[in-house]
Design a protein around this nucleic acid. Structure first.
Length: 805
RNA sequence: GCCGGAGUGGUGGAAUUGGUAUACACAGGAGACUUAAAAUCUCCCGGUCAUUGACCUCGUGGGUUCGAGUCCCACCUCCGGCACCA
């Protein structure tokens, strides 16, 4: 018998598959499956064990679908632009293009050593001019259609990275990458108007098969809220206060107004007496970072000297400026109802503003509100004229909104949390934004036939806060597309998330030089049927890609037939922790390198182990000991499958085989790889117990079932046994009747407690089941002398005898 | 604070969705083969008490039910997201 030598056979089969182009997708079949991994950023650290988890899952699914007759598109590529390569260049002087491509070479070697069935003919690299040419082209389409816009705005700035960041890239007030505090800067920047798609991005979530928690996170991020913009006259001014609120029903209790310091109205309404104080406050708060604002929870504010009139009550509401009101949320102005809002209460208390209760809260309290714990906005209205007695959150809210709209005092509005996507980056290693500025003609698109705008090489990477491209002579020498006079190029590059927002489209037609992808090819493959990756992309990448898909479809570049969503189904792999149950990290020293595992145990063992560890979506710790058990299973499969096939099988073995076919088939569909593997182990145990009764059919089926998980081993055994590789052109079928047991163990309960088990046919009737149960020796002593008053019988599961006395 | 997810043997985890809790593995114990070890194979393996058996056990405490890991209520712990959001 041959020795199982994984390193040898794995290399051999990988080579054969590559030479035979076994996994090349063809573009002309109807039953398609597009199975996609989130493509990796090729970091210098190489592959970590988290990568193969997702890649193995999609590989199993791809091989399984192919065996079931599907035409599968399963590609791989590189999300190659990004800050780490540039930071590395600053430190070492190695050009990002070089380090990135060295890393890609290493990643390719590592990924290929796992025997994954990618169609390498479709490999893409977002940093190649052939790719980013289309990234730039897409920017121009966004521009042409009014979805890309340059505007001055308060933006997030990271001092360490020396660049602006998107809203989504700010985590707890810190830069997602450097973890350093983000400060606010007023800058002119490029935005994609994601907000124009807020409604659709929200609604279409209902049409896709994604994990509910991920959908919920997107819903919360988009943050749709219904409310009303209330207008108030200002005493002694022609301007108006417009305040957004979700709780207009409390408006009889409104006693003051607060405006964000950044709001332009502050300057125009402040009275001369208050001017100095207000300006000083505005200046002081403007300099604060997000973090400082967050740390300083103590409310501060300054009176503008002006009053707005509460139309309902005639109350003169003082207008204050305070930084707890955010300029970019709602209208940047808030109506203060201190009795029924905690923030308003704190502010009113600090500055001795009037507090009027307008609700008997759910705890029955209707005394004056003097403590924070009394503040609540649920209950029955009081002190509120026509609202009195109504429930605050239902009747009263609607009645008040109706009243306000009818009298021209307010307008119902829908407000979203989502902001436009800031895509400019003052960095080098990204796709240049294809815009030219001319003194005479202003902002100009680079003509499409001049794409790509190639990244120059004569560049100093060191971040100065200005884009490195601005300092390149060769890059800046350009003439205006309209008048031909000297002009200058936009020197910012695009956020790398722009590149990754459309790569799934390029895989459909990766070598097309006329279009980013032809409509026919898009029609052939879209949408992605299964998309797999880490949950860290819950909002960023997945939201942006959805936005791109919708926008490009509306521009007419993606056929309508493929639907409004790019990823029909999504699964997230769980994180793999170190053996110490800690997050893997270099500094802790608990990092497992996939190369080492492949060298020691083989790729099939690594694949099988990562799938066997636990549920796909769960976080789970690595265990070097457990991996040996998986290798043992492959060793035993290796020797069992090399036995000469027996003439006939046993009914028991056949039953186990058919149960296994059924379970493995269903489990793969449901991403329950761990239980699929345990069933394969059960099957092998049965095979090993009856070596002389393992017939050819059993061997063939077992190898077929094993092949998506351990493809090299299965291929080698098929060859050794003379079954040929055609074996893997089909998936075994199970016979439902052969998966049924003839007799089953049924538990006998007496008054709900298990007292014994009996053997019965699964369709035995209650009378005969009861007869056998009552005769069971372990049961008898619990029922003698007692009356059986009720019997509950679940065929094939339990029989429960309820006794009295 | 608000919104999600999770809590099962010494360990990773199973449990046909309300029906015999601990499948499949790992670790551990005993034995076989071996001069020996490794490898391999066979058996045992949640806890307490005990004579054949009984009782307890799925984060904690209640509840619904003939029957609850699974459903309901309250609470505890861990992980993830959001957060002066009007």
């Amino acid at each position: 018998m041959n020795e199982y030598n994984p390193q040898e056979i794995e290399q051999k089969w990988q080579q054969r598959w590559q030479e035979a182009k076994t996994f090349t997708a063809s573009d002309d079949q109807a039953s398609k499956q597009y199975i996609l991994d989130m493509f990796p950023y090729p970091s210098a650290a190489g592959l970590h064990v988290g990568h193969p988890e997702g890649y193995t899952a999609t590989d199993i699914l791809s091989r399984f679908r192919r065996m079931n007759g599907f035409n599968v598109l399963h590609p791989m590529g590189w999300d190659a632009f990004g800050l780490p390569a540039e930071n590395y260049a600053i430190k070492t002087g190695v050009h990002p293009d070089k380090s990135t491509h060295d890393n890609i070479t290493n990643f390719t070697r590592q990924i290929q050593s796992l025997g994954l069935s990618y169609d390498w003919g479709r490999e893409i690299d977002t940093s190649s001019p052939e790719y980013y040419r289309w990234t730039q082209w897409m920017f121009l389409q966004m521009y042409k259609n009014g979805l890309a816009e340059r505007k001055k705005a308060k933006v997030n700035w990271c001092n360490t990275c020396q660049t602006v960041l998107a809203n989504e890239q700010v985590v707890d007030g810190n830069c997602e990458r450097s973890k350093d505090p983000v400060i606010q800067k007023d800058l002119e920047q490029w935005f994609f108007k994601t907000t124009q798609y807020a409604d659709q991005l929200l609604e279409d979530l209902d049409t896709i098969d994604w994990p509910e928690p991920i959908k919920l996170m997107q819903r919360n991020w988009i943050g749709r809220q219904e409310g009303i913009d209330l207008s108030y006259d200002i005493d002694g001014s022609n301007e108006k206060i417009v305040a957004f609120t979700k709780f207009p029903e409390t408006n009889f209790g409104a006693t003051f107004i607060v405006v964000a310091p950044e709001h332009p109205i502050v300057r125009s309404i402040t009275t001369p007496e208050q001017e100095a104080e207000v300006l000083a406050y505005v200046e002081r708060t403007a300099g604060l970072t997000e973090l400082q604002r967050k740390e300083n929870r103590e409310k501060t504010g300054v009176f503008t000297g002006r009053y707005a009139i509460n139309t309902l009550t005639g109350f003169k509401m003082p207008i204050w400026v305070a930084d707890f009101v955010l300029a970019n949320y709602g209208t940047g102005m808030v109506v203060g109802v201190p009795a029924h809002d905690e923030r308003d209460f704190e502010f009113a208390q600090k500055y001795s503003l009037e507090i009027i209760r307008v609700m008997k809260t759910t705890d029955g309290d209707e005394s004056p509100v003097t403590e924070l714990s009394q503040v609540d906005h649920n209950g029955a209205m009081m002190n509120s004229d026509f609202l009195n007695g109504m429930d605050a959150q239902s009747e009263a809210k609607t009645a008040m909104m109706d009243y306000m709209e009818k009298h021209g005092l307010g307008k119902r509005v829908v407000f979203f949390n989502l902001r436009d996507w800031l895509i400019s980056r003052q960095r080098y290693w990204g796709a240049p934004i294809p815009i030219i500025y001319c003194d005479e003609h202003g902002e100009q698109s680079v003509p499409e036939d001049q794409l790509p705008v190639v990244l120059p090489t004569d560049v100093d990477f060191r971040p100065t806060g200005e884009s490195p491209l601005a300092l390149s002579k060769t890059f800046q020498d350009v003439s205006c597309p309209t008048c031909g006079q000297p002009a200058r190029r936009e020197s910012d590059t695009m956020d790398t998330f722009v590149c990754s927002s459309w790569y799934y489209l390029r895989f459909c037609d990766p070598n097309n030089e006329q279009e980013f992808a032809s409509p026919d090819k898009l029609k052939q493959w879209l949408p992605v049927d299964m998309y797999v990756g880490g949950a860290e992309h819950a909002v960023l990448h997945l939201l942006y890609a959805r936005f791109f898909h919708k926008a490009l479809q509306d521009f007419g570049f993606i056929p309508k037939e493929v639907g409004r969503e790019p990823f029909a189904a999504l699964r997230n792999q769980g994180m793999i922790l170190g053996e110490d149950h800690q997050k893997m990290s270099k500094s802790v020293g608990n990092v497992i390198n996939p190369d080492d595992v492949v060298n020691e145990y083989g790729a099939d063992t690594l694949r099988l182990y990562e799938m066997f560890m636990g549920p796909f979506e769960d976080t789970k710790p690595w265990s070097t000991k457990s991996i040996k058990g998986v290798r043992r299973f492959l060793d035993r499969s290796w020797s069992a499958m090399q036995q000469p096939a027996g003439i006939k099988t046993t009914p028991d073995l056949q039953k186990t085989l058919h149960k296994t076919i059924k379970k493995v088939t269903n489990d793969i569909e449901q991403f329950k790889f761990n239980t699929a593997i345990s069933q394969l182990m059960i099957c092998l145990n049965a095979i090993s117990a009856n070596p002389e009764f393992v017939d050819e059919q059993t061997q063939r089926s077992f190898l077929q079932l094993l092949s998506p998980f351990a493809p090299h081993l299965a291929a080698e055994l098929a060859e050794l046994q003379g079954y040929g590789q055609d074996l893997f052109a089909s998936w075994p079928k199970f016979d439902e009747t052969l998966t049924q047991d003839d007799s089953v163990q049924v538990a006998v309960q007496v008054s709900g407690k298990v007292r014994g088990t009996i053997e019965l046919s699964p369709d035995a009737d209650e009378a005969s089941a009861r007869l056998v149960a009552e005769a069971n020796e372990n049961v008898v002593k619990h029922i003698t002398g007692k009356e059986i008053i009720k019997v509950i019988y679940v065929p094939g599961r339990i029989i429960n005898l309820i006794v009295k006395g």
